[in-house]
Design a protein around this nucleic acid. Structure first.
Length: 918
RNA sequence: GGGCGAAUAGCUCAGUUGGUUAGAGCGCCUGCCUUACACGCAGGAAGUCGGGGGUUCGAGUCCCUCUUCGCCCACCA
């Protein structure tokens, strides 16, 4: 009747996962079809997730593992719900990051990129990407990612590069891209400018130097030796000072405005000017103005039309770079900015100009790619005017067209967009999309063009293209559009844009998410997605972010090898509250991933038991079983299954807004993946396995009608459980699903999501049986009855439960190892007692093992705690305010409870009286 | 400097709009190799829900305040 040999006793993920994945691919389960989308005349709602493209040179780490598992769970859920589900994968060329890697390789040959030249450098980088790139996409397959690989995209591919150029030119034509000469963030190591977002703040302990600038004497009235003291954290930049600014309201300095000072070391005469920017409460109230090396000073200098000498070059070396002849003392020339600072301070001290230096906390900016301290630098860059682009993106989140989960990030997003500043998009790199702008030296025309230009459109003279490339995030910002074929009006674009959910880490909310929303509106008039799901960070037990450099990382593939992809997936999904960080211990993978491994094993064993007992003969559909043939246990498990399905649906939430914007009920609902997981787990484990499977064993052992009923219920229930769990643990569920006798050849990944049955079973009767079994088990444990020993138990059912317990005494006895008999009154002999919630009495005969004193103590303490709670409950029910203000259903359930408790209290009190003689 | 978040069992965390006796996993204790599972089963211990104040019939949940961590943003040199 069964085929136990077919089901291995041990589930070996490593031996089945790879083949299973290959089979899924061969069946094209993950390939979406534009024609099936209802936006293209097809029958289905589309559901689309664009994968945040990992850097093309990246290797999978836990952060990717987490984020892609999240996306995979969501897309697998929607796929089963009948949506035309598309998860679109791809990689990012990652300008600075990739260029850095290749430059390091060149450095090993003792060369720089300038030695090989631009063309050769790009060729080498392309080769490097071709050889080693995209590894991460292969690795994602190992964790079961159900992406549509036929659509794999790459930001630097020809079609996506075309989208980038189109976007640039359109913004240029709308006047939203302009060229500006200003102080920007510069990385002296990467030798490129950075956007505000790429220059990260770091709090540091530094020094504030007070430096005396002596006033030049113009007439005899001047006090000899008079000076003005400025405060600065960057003394080395003083060599490029062009003024000292004081606040016009600052009376200390009123007389000095208009005078000049002699800049120490540089020996240049500079004016004292009045400017609002100077804060009288900070330092000495006198501020040195260094326009070329400080963005604010630049603004001040512009207002006062001051010169802008440069003394720090692109590599951070101090010398007379521009308009600074004679300013840099011999002993400082050629020094790195750090060394120059020390030297300047030393010289100032020697010259008696250093008044004092004090400790000072300040925040410095570092390059997000290489951590080098960023240098403010005066240069010519391309900028995007952000205010007009930000407006619709702000509105979208404010009015709920786009929602951000968890909710609190919406405020952060709004706050940032409200204060948005123009975006520097030029990068002085070679790896990236070259800026599609051509300069004509003849007529001076600057042209942005979709096609490469040979001649000036105005004067037909020769032109040269801008040397710079675009910020990597410019192309990333177009990702939802460009991957779907924009700017062409492709089938994919029509069928799948806007997409649905974007899942990523909050760190790139500004870098990427906000810009995608802006670009979506700018080029398509629609948001690129409707939900932004921001997950937490993976950290180690010390709450440090996992990273390669800290050496506290976990390689997801190690976990897959040891415990399987499902264990990895289950662990990260089950352990992750919405937006909360995930803590994993790289030094104890065994313990970290135990939840997943244990659950997968349990599921496998549930399947093994169930399938071997059901056997391979045909099984009736549940619909063909007459309802009256279902046992209480059957009705119970079906009812519980239904509860589980509902709970999962509720946790996963609405897939899409019911109108143009999410309404207040939908807005922050759903995508509680941990709640969904917990609902499915607890049903499978604590209900199906612990109670139903145990209760059904006897029925399966006897051939006959009831066995067929039990088989039908088992197969139906397990089938539904596998469907519920497929998105989380696709491999083990697939392996079990294929062995189901009612299997019709459909793949689990595209099987229909379980439906909430209207006629779910009534669970209350079997709940009482469970209560009775638990009571007997607890009494056994209390009185240390040997585990193997069968005890005698008398049940005195409440009137309502008489029939129930008469019929189920055999089952209850089996589950509790007891000979259960039903009686109208409890036996007189000394025994262990318990009272169920409905008043049914449970009496265990223990032949002398029960000591009356102990039993009395037990019952009394139980009675006391019950009475205490009952008093509180009754107090509440007498309270007029409660009755008047609480919701009717709350009052009703409290009343019902009070009834139950008081009948139970009577019984316990009786027991205590008769047993303890009180 | 501004804003946000967290603080619940030994550890990691759940706890929707305030409403039964606050839950799970891991760990721990006591028994069990009960014919699916010891990665398991049965039973158990363990929480003044960070401190203080307030609102309410009722607070882990709402308000104020303090403490300790963490994050984001920021042009006071």
């Amino acid at each position: 009747m069964s085929h136990p040999a077919e089901i291995p006793s041990q589930y070996e993920p490593s031996s089945v996962e790879e083949a299973a994945y290959a089979r899924w691919l061969a069946q094209s389960l993950f390939t979406a079809h534009a024609s099936r989308s209802n936006r293209a005349g097809g029958p289905r709602d589309p559901y689309v997730i664009v994968m945040p493209p990992p850097n093309v040179t990246a290797v999978l780490h836990m952060g990717h593992g987490l984020n892609n598992t999240v996306q995979d769970v969501i897309i697998r859920w929607r796929r089963m719900c009948g949506d035309e589900a598309l998860w679109l994968p791809g990689t990012d060329h990652a300008g600075i990051a990739t260029q850095n890697v290749v430059e390091k390789l060149l450095a090993k040959e003792g060369k720089t990129r300038h030695d090989v030249g631009r063309v050769e450098f790009i060729r080498r980088t392309e080769q490097f990407v071709a050889d080693t790139g995209g590894v991460i996409l292969q690795q994602l397959k190992a964790i079961g990612a159900s992406a549509d690989w036929t659509r794999t995209a790459y930001t630097l591919s020809p079609p996506l590069s075309r989208a980038v150029r189109e976007a640039f030119v359109r913004l240029f034509e709308r006047g939203l891209i302009y060229r500006g000469h200003r102080v920007i963030h510069w990385c002296p190591r990467c030798l490129t400018s950075l956007s505000d977002e790429e220059a990260e703040h770091h709090e540091t302990e530094g020094k504030l130097y007070h430096i005396a600038y002596p006033l030049t004497q113009v007439n005899a009235r001047d006090t000899p030796g008079a000076r003005i003291v400025v405060a600065t954290t960057r003394p080395e930049t003083m060599l490029a000072d062009v003024a000292v600014a004081v606040n016009p309201t600052d009376e200390r300095y009123t007389d000095l405005v208009g005078r000049t000072v002699l800049l120490p070391l540089a020996n240049v005469e500079i004016p004292i000017i009045a400017d609002e920017y100077s804060d009288p409460t900070f330092g000495t109230g006198a501020l040195k103005i260094t326009p070329a090396h400080d963005a604010n000073d630049f603004d001040v200098a512009q207002r006062h039309q001051l010169a802008m000498p440069v003394v720090i070059d692109e590599s951070g070396v101090v010398h007379e770079v521009m308009d600074a002849a004679g300013r840099v003392p011999e002993s400082i020339r050629g020094l790195d900015r750090q060394d120059a600072r020390a030297k300047v301070v030393e010289l100032l001290r020697e010259g008696g100009f250093l008044v004092k230096s004090e400790n000072h906390r300040l925040s410095i900016r570092r390059c997000y790619r290489c951590d080098t301290i960023v240098e403010p630098r005066l240069s010519e860059q391309w900028f995007v005017k952000m205010k007009p682009l930000a407006a619709p993106a702000l509105k979208a989140v404010r009015d709920g067209t786009v929602r951000i989960l968890p909710e609190r990030w919406e405020a952060v997003y709004i706050n940032w967009l409200e204060g948005i500043r123009d975006w520097n998009i030029s990068r002085q790199l070679w790896w990236g999309h070259r800026i599609p702008v051509w300069y004509c030296d003849g007529c001076g025309r600057v042209s942005a063009s979709r096609e490469n230009l040979e001649r000036c459109p105005a004067c037909s003279g020769p032109v040269r293209q801008d040397e710079d490339v675009l910020d990597t995030w410019f192309s990333s910002g177009l990702w939802p559009l460009s991957t779907l074929g924009w700017p062409d009006e492709t089938d994919d674009l029509r069928a799948f844009y806007p997409t649905d959910t974007l899942s990523t880490a909050p760190e790139i909310l500004f870098f990427w998410v906000a810009r995608m929303i802006m670009m979506g509106y700018a080029f398509r008039g629609e948001p690129p997605f409707r939900t932004v799901y921001l997950h937490g960070t993976v950290r180690d037990p010390n709450h440090l972010k996992m990273s390669k450099s800290l050496g506290n990382g976990i390689d997801p593939l190690d976990v897959v090898r040891s415990y399987g992809a499902d264990a990895l997936r289950y662990t990260v999904i089950a352990g992750m509250g919405l937006g909360a960080d995930t803590i994993l211990d790289p030094n104890d993978l065994e313990r970290s991933f135990a939840p997943g491994r244990n659950f997968v094993t349990k599921l496998w064993n549930i399947g093994r038991f169930l399938l071997t007992n059901v056997g391979s003969e045909p099984v009736s559909s549940l619909d063909d079983i007459a309802p009256h043939r279902l046992t209480r246990a059957d009705r119970w498990v079906l009812g519980r299954l239904n509860d589980a399905i509902r709970a999962c649906d509720k946790a996963l939430g609405p897939a899409r807004p019911s109108a143009a914007a999410w309404n207040s009920e939908e807005r922050y609902a759903g995508l509680r993946l941990n709640e969904y997981t917990e609902s499915a787990r607890s049903f499978a484990w604590s209900e199906l396995a612990d109670w139903y499977l145990e209760s059904v064993k006897a029925r399966l052992a006897v051939a006959g009608e009831d066995r067929e009923v039990a088989r039908a219920v088992l197969v139906h229930t397990f089938d539904q459980v596998l469907r519920l769990l497929q998105p989380i643990v696709p491999f083990v569920t697939d392996a079990l699903w294929q062995r189901l006798p009612r299997h019709d050849g459909t793949a689990l990944a595209v099987a229909l999501w379980p439906a909430d049955r209207v006629t779910a079973g009534d669970v209350r009767e079997f709940d009482l049986v469970i209560e009775a079994v638990n009571a007997i088990r607890r009494l056994r444990a209390d009185y240390a009855v040997a585990p193997g020993k069968t005890v005698s138990c008398t049940l005195v059912p409440s009137p309502a439960a008489t029939r129930l317990f008469t019929e189920e005494s055999g089952l209850a006895g089996r589950l509790a190892r007891a000979d259960v008999s039903i009686a109208a009154a409890p036996p007189a002999e000394s025994a262990a007692h318990a009272v169920l919630s409905d008043g049914t009495q449970v009496v265990l005969s223990l032949a002398g093992a029960v000591d009356v004193e102990r039993e009395c103590a037990r019952l009394k303490s139980e009675l006391a705690s019950l009475e205490k709670q009952l008093d509180a409950l009754r107090g509440r029910l007498k309270n007029e305010n409660f009755l008047a203000r609480a919701k009717p259903d709350v009052v009703e359930s409290e009343r019902q409870k009070a009834g139950e408790w008081s009948s139970r209290r009577e019984l316990l009190a009786d027991k205590v009286r008769s047993l303890c003689g009180g």
